[in-house]
Design a protein around this nucleic acid. Structure first.
Lengths: 211, 211
DNA sequence: AATTGAATCTTAACACTGTCAAGATCATAG
DNA sequence: CTATGATCTTGACAGTGTTAAGATTCAATT
């Protein structure tokens, strides 16, 4: 059943246990959720004893952190590949849709990346780097739209605003805080919310300056 | 040390164990985080055996759900009390600040309310009601600004947009995905992101209609 | 080629956890 | 006063993360 090599010697020195653990964890994560992802179950699924993983990861937390880093890198790559080609008038919409889509395809991973399970006194650097890499994609797009340099305050403000919005929407949808009507696509949800912002700002302006 | 009544009979029939469990859980939640909030520790902190709680809550999940319901109700009440009095031009900013402030004061509870720990095949009704009650506050404010009825599509879109944004910002800040520079207040973060949206929409309009 | 040391895995154990089943105690309704 | 049901305890089971110490194998040095 399992596609891993026949494991000629029954025990000892699997070879690439770290990778196998990570990839097993990756799929098991989506099956059972992050809370129920256990080291022991992970090891026994690979036919290895419960404590074998601890020679490759100091902690359960470290394994989770590496999964999260994977997630950030993949997200960054997807945003980079698919969002660059979009025409200007679809950049925002398209970017948000790609982001939300990533969450839809990897809900448990997304919850891990942005949830409370990653608790460190000091976050590992690979995680911070990967996270920054994903955020940079957003900043670049915003800089492009605003026609400013990526490190300008305006760009940072707008990028933070965008991230807050799309992360919030993704989070609310994934955790089923919002029950999406089945006949409405993610694309339309994004379009509606974006026009929702427009409505708000127009109304705000009208309230301030009642001409 | 503990303020609870002297517990005249040593065991049996504490009296209001359910309430005591909830209030202990509420504070312990913020001390150790939701993942490490354990039934047994909770019980032993109240001087009661490990399984006593199960005569008042069928599950750990049910206890957590009741905590989350508390959270939603408190959030709704705060929004109702403090946001109504705000002048029109400060309604959005003020609302968001109250919301974020709630998260700041109850970070673990907020993560419980909107995180993956609440896993039910069917969400308990008290939770859904309380959640809806909080969301209604937002819809009412948006309806007020847009001068439309709360059930109009425009209001729903704008309310969902607002909720996505402020929840996303709160979530990113609480989980320390964003490292906030210490000299910037939450109020300024909100102001900056809101103007960030304005910048984006202006640039978007300019890109569509390059006059 | 043999030996040594490090990397890798196993066995055994500890202290936890959620939860169930069965018994003890107690308040209260009849 | 007795009995019923609510409440709490005792005891147990299966599962968890993690550590310490031993077994095995790989790799490199002699």
């Amino acid at each position: 059943m399992s596609a891993q090599q026949p494991n000629s010697r029954q025990h000892y020195h699997v070879g690439n246990l770290a990778e196998q653990l990570l990839s097993s964890a990756r799929s098991m994560l989506e099956e059972v959720g992050v809370a129920k992802l256990s080291m022991r179950a992970l090891c026994s699924a690979l036919g290895v004893t419960a404590t074998a993983a601890y020679h490759h990861f100091t902690n359960r937390a470290e394994l989770l952190a590496q999964l999260a880093t994977q997630g950030y890198l993949e997200l960054a790559e997807e945003l980079n590949e698919k969002a660059v080609a979009l025409p200007v008038e679809e950049k925002i919409r398209g970017f948000c849709l790609i982001y939300l889509n990533f969450g839809r395809r990897n809900p448990a991973l997304y919850q891990l990346m942005f949830g409370p399970e990653l608790e460190f006194e000091q976050m590992p650097e690979h995680l911070l780097n990967a996270r920054q890499q994903a955020f940079s994609r957003l900043e670049l797009m915003v800089a492009d739209l605003l026609k400013q340099t990526p490190d300008s305050p305006d760009v940072r403000s707008a990028a933070l605003a965008s991230w807050s919005y799309i992360h919030g929407l993704t989070s609310l949808l994934l955790h089923e805080v919002l029950q999406r009507p089945k006949d409405i696509s993610d694309q339309r949800i994004i379009e509606r919310t974006l026009t929702g912002f427009e409505l708000l700002f127009n109304a705000y302006a009208a309230n301030i300056n009642p001409a």
